[in-house]
Structures are given as C-alpha cells and as structure tokens.
Design a protein around this nucleic acid. Structure first.
Lengths: 250, 250
DNA sequence: TTCTAGTCGACTGCCTACAGCATACAGTCC
DNA sequence: GGACTGTATGCTGTAGGCAGTCGACTAGAA
C-alpha cells in the first residue's frame, strides 16, 4: 500500500523525539477526523493506520484511546475503533453544557479574577477586534477560543477548566463553521462580559456569558437547518475485506 | 517476586475471557487506589503491576490510560504513571461542578422526564428510606448514587450525563465517608425534588438539587476540618530502586 | 566537604509476533 | 433453492523483547 502524504512528515518528526510517537499519531488522526477525511462511522483498522503513519500498532492503539476519551472515536472492545458519528442532537447538547460551564466560569471569574487576568482578557479582546478589522478570520476564531478559555481559567476552578476544555474541543468539530461567521457582535459581548468581571458583578457576568453562548447555540441551529453537509474527499483505507460493523446483538 | 493475593483471582477470571484483561486490571487498580492501598503520589511501575496482576505490560498500560482519563492516576510522558494526589481544593471544586451539573440536570428532568422515569425515581427513593430504616448504609449509599444518576439520565442530555458520571466517580473518592453520614434529611430532599419534577417545576427542581448538593459540599468541608486522614496499610511495590519523582523542571 | 564526571541500571516507549475470535465465502445436505 | 457447516482470513488482544533515556550512585578533583 502506498502511504498518503503523512508518513514522511512523521518520519521527519521521528528524528527529534522527546515527544512520543503516539502524540503525533493522535494529532494526525484528529486532523483527519476534523477535516472529515476519515468518515464518521468509519472503522479504523489499527494495522492500516499504523502502516499509513509509518509506526507500529502500539502507538496507534494508545492514540485511539485518547481520541476515544475526547469523543473523536468510539471504541467497541473486540471490534476496534470507529470514527464518532456527530449528530445534531449531540451538538446541541454539547453547546448546552458549554453554556452552563462557561456561565458558571464567568460567575466565578467575577469574584476570583486578579488584575493581571482581567488585563489579559482585555488584551485578547482587543486583538480580536483587530483581527476582525483585518478580516483575519482564522486568528479571530483562535482568539475567540482564547478569550473563553481565559475566563474559565480565571474562575480558579481547575475541574471546571478541565471539563470546559473537553467540551470546547468537541464542540469545535461542529462549531468551527459558525464561529467563522459570528462577527463584531460577539466581540462586543465579550467586552461587556469583561466589564462585568472587572466590576465584580458575578450575576451580570454569568448572565452575559449565558446569553452569549446561547446565541452561539442558536446560530448553530439556524445554520444547520440552512445548509446541508458539504461532501468531503475521504481517505479510502485500503483493505480487501472489512468487517461490516459491530457484532449482531444478542 | 511473590505476587499479592490478586493474581489467582485474575488467573481464574482469565479462563472465561470474553472481557479483555485490561478491564480486570482497571478494576483491580481502581479498587487499590480507592482503598488507598496504593498511596497518592506513588509511582506505578508498569512491570511491577504486570507481575503483580499476572499479565503483561500491555494491558496494564491500557488500564493506566483509562485510569488517567478518569482522574485516578496522572501520566507523565516518559516518566510513567503516578497515583493522583487528591487535594481538599480539588474535592471542593469537584463538588461545586457536581452541584452545577446536577442542578441543571434536575431543571431539564422537570421538563423532559416521562412517567416511567418519575416512577423509577420514586421507587429508588422508597428503597432508600427502607435501607435507611434497616441501617443498611452500603445500600443506602448506592441508592443515593442511583437517584442522582437517574435524575441526570432523565435530563435527556447525554453529554451532561457523561460529565456528571465522571465527576461522580471522582467525587466518591473523597466523598464516600460523608455520604455514609447524611441520613434521613437527604432522602426527604430527594422526595421534594421528585415532587418538583413531577409538577414540571423546572426552577424549583434546580433549586432543590442545588441546595441539596451544596449541603453535601458543606458537610464535606466540615468533616474535613473535623478529622484528619486516617492511615491505611499501603501496598509496598517491591523494587530495588525507585525514581524519586518527576524530572527536575527546566 | 562539595562539586563534577562517569557508570550502572531501572523504566518507558516501541516493535514484532502469536493466539483466538469473528466474519465472509464456498461447498454440502435437506 | 435455502439453510447449514467447514475453511480461510482479517483484526484485535496480549506477550515478550529491545533500545534509548533518565535517575541514582560512586569516585575523583577542587
């Protein structure tokens, strides 16, 4: 089988290796999944992935475990890994949980944040406006994520941060397309949020964050109804025979 | 090295093996950690665990990954696994997040739950009162967890359920001792909660759940201040030499 | 005594190989 | 012709082993 373009890159990385191979595998596969080049529901055969990425099955297995934790793939013991099927329902549920976690974060941040943290927030938001003005959408999206993350960090609750990070990662799978479309308003809402935090007004901060995230959720729903999924070029993992799916139940 | 008492048990299990070994390893280790026979901060050497449990390193590695996801151990790449150090701070943060997630669950359950689900709740709570009357603390603790889980299931938000389950597992590490002490009041609160859900009063349900869980949190803090940690007999993992800890940073 | 270089060995990360199960296919019996 | 059984083979789970890395210990010098 001729490897896709990835193995050379991996082979290169392999030379300076303080970072475990599984990390690279993890990242490569995450990219493939996010970009939908591996189709939802697709069976991921360890040996094929290993060959494709130029490593053995071991690091692939470990990477698959991580991907499983983070909701990118589903593991069925004895039957291997399958790319997770994102459903509209799940997206909505994720966004709901995100809203919950982040509004609580904002509430806590209003009482916990220090001056330096608030300054950091302001700076990020300023950069966001600038990216917006420069039409630099990628940067704006990244900065948006950074603002939200920063608020959660300022909550001072590490557990909350952990969970919010998890949700955020998964949400972005669905959400990136919309994130690219919400413009100035979003950053104005951030500004208000930061004001509330600075004024130590916990309730206001929580409310603003909730409205802010709920608006995102609504955008998602609208967009979803508006346009269908666009097709993507899938990686055809070459096998002669392939298991159809999970075992017949019962 | 002479294995501890575990390997025979595992060896027996090994005969009827539809379940992967790593599952058994996972459960065995979780038990050892919860019971504090593996000390917080202790370095878990794969080969020793493998020998102790009578399996090879591979299933141990995979079990460690799971344990890591769920917060029981911390993995430091290149340095192995360490039993997670639970701190009072973290416990408090976990309980705070739990409160958040569960009160939202209650809110949603009030609008989403069906008759059958509510009946299930009532039944669990009835059993809880009975266990309490019979002084069967273990059953009462289990039923308490079941009630909370059931509410979260009835929320209809699978993501919320996922996270709540995670939190719950970890919380129980700290929390079991107090859970054993909260008595009748707790079950009366459940009853009120179920009433609110049945009446479709989302706000009341959320409020009751929040107060209920916050009360637990307070109990935890009080208890923590009251008595210190009792010592436990640790498993001495036999090695000649052992790395002290993680590498010197920077 | 304290600092430094060198050596030893423990431990992780990774690879290869094998065993067992599950599926798919082909041939056989009713 | 349809159901059943036997066989080939893909794929996972697990074992075992090798190499590189990092910490601990030791000896020698300042």
């Amino acid at each position: 089988m001729q490897p896709t373009e990835l193995p050379k890159e991996l082979a290169a990385r392999r030379i300076d290796r303080p970072v475990p191979l599984r990390e690279h595998v993890y990242q490569a596969m995450q990219e493939l999944i996010i970009s939908r080049r591996l189709a939802p529901g697709q069976h991921l055969v360890e040996s094929e992935l290993a060959q494709m990425l130029g490593v053995s099955r071991q690091p692939v297995r470990e990477a698959l475990q991580w991907l499983n934790n983070e909701g990118w793939v589903d593991l069925r013991p004895g039957y291997g890994a399958f790319v997770h099927q994102p459903t509209p329902d799940e997206a909505d549920q994720l966004l709901a949980v995100r809203s919950l976690l982040e509004s609580e974060s904002a509430r806590l941040a209003a009482t916990q944040a220090d001056e330096e943290g608030i300054a950091r927030l302001r700076d990020l938001n300023k950069q966001g406006f600038e990216a917006l003005a420069a039409d630099d959408v990628d940067t704006a999206v990244a900065l948006n994520a950074a603002v939200h993350r920063c608020v959660t960090e300022l909550s001072g609750n590490k557990v909350l941060l952990d969970f919010a990070t998890q949700v955020d990662r998964r949400v972005r799978w669905y959400y990136t397309p919309i994130a690219r479309q919400r413009g100035k308003q979003s950053w104005q809402e951030h500004a208000k949020l930061i004001d509330a935090i600075e004024n130590r007004d916990a309730e206001a901060a929580a409310r603003i964050m909730q409205e802010h995230t709920e608006r995102t959720r609504k955008s998602y729903l609208e967009q979803r109804d508006a346009d269908g999924e666009q097709e993507q070029q899938l990686i055809e993992l070459p096998t002669r025979r392939r298991r159809r799916s999970s075992p017949a139940k019962g």
